[in-house]
Amino acid sequence: MKHRWHLMELEDQAWFPHMVRQGMMDVLRFLITALGIYKPIVPLLLKALRQTNQSKIIDLCAGAGGGILQIWEELEKQSGQPINITVTDKFPNVEAYQFLQAQSKGAITYAEEEVDATAVPVALIGFRTVFSAFHHFRPEMAQKILQDAVRQNQGIGVFEGASKKWHELLLVWLVFPWVILLITPFIRPFTWSRLFFTYLVPLIPLGVVWDGTVSILRMYTPEHLHAMVQKLDAPHYTWQIGRAKHWSGTGVLYLIGYPS
């Protein structure tokens, strides 16, 4: 699938109910963690942290935190040193972030205020990451996210937990709805609204299927990412772009850049 179609994602819309958006993000966080989607990129991220002498990550466009708790655990395990992460988003999911902070014993903190990934506040210093969210941005905005990291001389890693293959659409359509119905009672922190919008008024499963479909169609290919990097004024940066193999057979798309 070489082309990119920028269709409408529900969670991007300001009018979309916040409770439903939060529920959808919680589902994705649970699935990403349960499947260990981002485990294959941990060695790549750890190498980039070492190259930049960083132990602090600023996670942009965090949603409900995705697999960030598992990534933090793996980074600490593989590095043998403390790693601190600050999660940020345009629509902060504070309840989910408080849960992550408690689970990590304070190693994962969060910004309560809105954070624009194209103009990150200078006070947020650290290696930047974008998990499962780069496809939300049109090319010119995606370029600005990379350019802002370069402008502030910060490392950045962009990761998408799919490989933009047609069979992934079949999984979203045929498997995801049933999986969501099965896992929802086990998602923490528990909320009654998540049960309501899953079983009585199924906006969460419908939203996940719609946005999951659009996400795959919106996703950038390695060729797209190479073209973006070539447009950056960053001769002093080292860039790595590719796909990391996941145990399920799919690939995790990644772009990593840092000052040489």
Rank of each mutant, 00 (worst) to 15 (best):
M1T: 02
K2V: 00
H3F: 14
R4C: 00
L7D: 01
M8P: 04
M8I: 14
E9H: 05
L10Y: 10
P17N: 09
H18R: 14
M19R: 11
R21D: 10
R21C: 06
Q22M: 11
Q22T: 10
M24W: 04
M24V: 06
R29L: 02
L31A: 08
I32T: 11
T33A: 14
A34R: 15
L35E: 13
I37Y: 08
P40L: 06
V42E: 05
P43L: 04
L45Q: 09
A48H: 05
L49G: 05
R50A: 15
Q51R: 12
I58K: 13
D59T: 03
L60C: 07
C61F: 12
G63L: 13
A64K: 10
A64C: 03
G66H: 12
G67L: 07
I68A: 01
L69F: 12
L69D: 01
Q70F: 03
I71H: 12
W72D: 01
K77Q: 14
V87T: 04
L100A: 09
Q101D: 09
A102S: 14
Q103K: 15
S104E: 06
G106F: 15
A107P: 02
T109L: 03
T109V: 13
T109A: 10
T109F: 03
V115A: 02
D116G: 05
D116H: 10
D116W: 12
T118P: 02
T118E: 05
A119D: 07
A119Q: 11
A119M: 13
V122P: 01
V122S: 14
I125V: 10
I125F: 00
F127R: 08
R128D: 00
V130M: 06
F131L: 05
A133P: 02
F134L: 13
F134I: 11
H135D: 03
H135N: 07
H135F: 12
H136S: 09
F137H: 10
F137L: 15
R138M: 00
M141T: 12
A142K: 05
A142F: 00
D148H: 12
D148K: 10
V150F: 01
R151M: 00
R151H: 07
G155W: 02
I156Y: 01
G157A: 15
G161D: 09
W166A: 10
E168T: 05
E168Y: 03
E168D: 08
L170W: 05
V172D: 02
V175W: 07
V175R: 08
V179F: 07
P185H: 06
R188H: 01
P189Y: 01
F190G: 04
F190A: 13
T191D: 01
W192R: 09
R194V: 02
R194F: 00
L195F: 07
T198V: 07
T198A: 05
L200C: 09
L200Q: 04
P202H: 14
P205W: 13
L206Y: 14
G207A: 09
V208Y: 10
V209C: 04
G212R: 05
G212W: 04
T213N: 15
I216R: 06
L217K: 14
L217T: 03
R218S: 03
M219F: 13
Y220H: 12
T221I: 04
H226D: 11
V229Y: 02
Q230M: 09
Q230Y: 09
K231L: 11
L232Y: 00
H236F: 10
T238L: 13
Q240V: 07
Q240C: 06
G242R: 07
G242S: 10
G242L: 11
A244F: 04
W247V: 08
W247F: 15
S248L: 15
S248A: 13
Y254L: 02
G257W: 00
P259S: 03
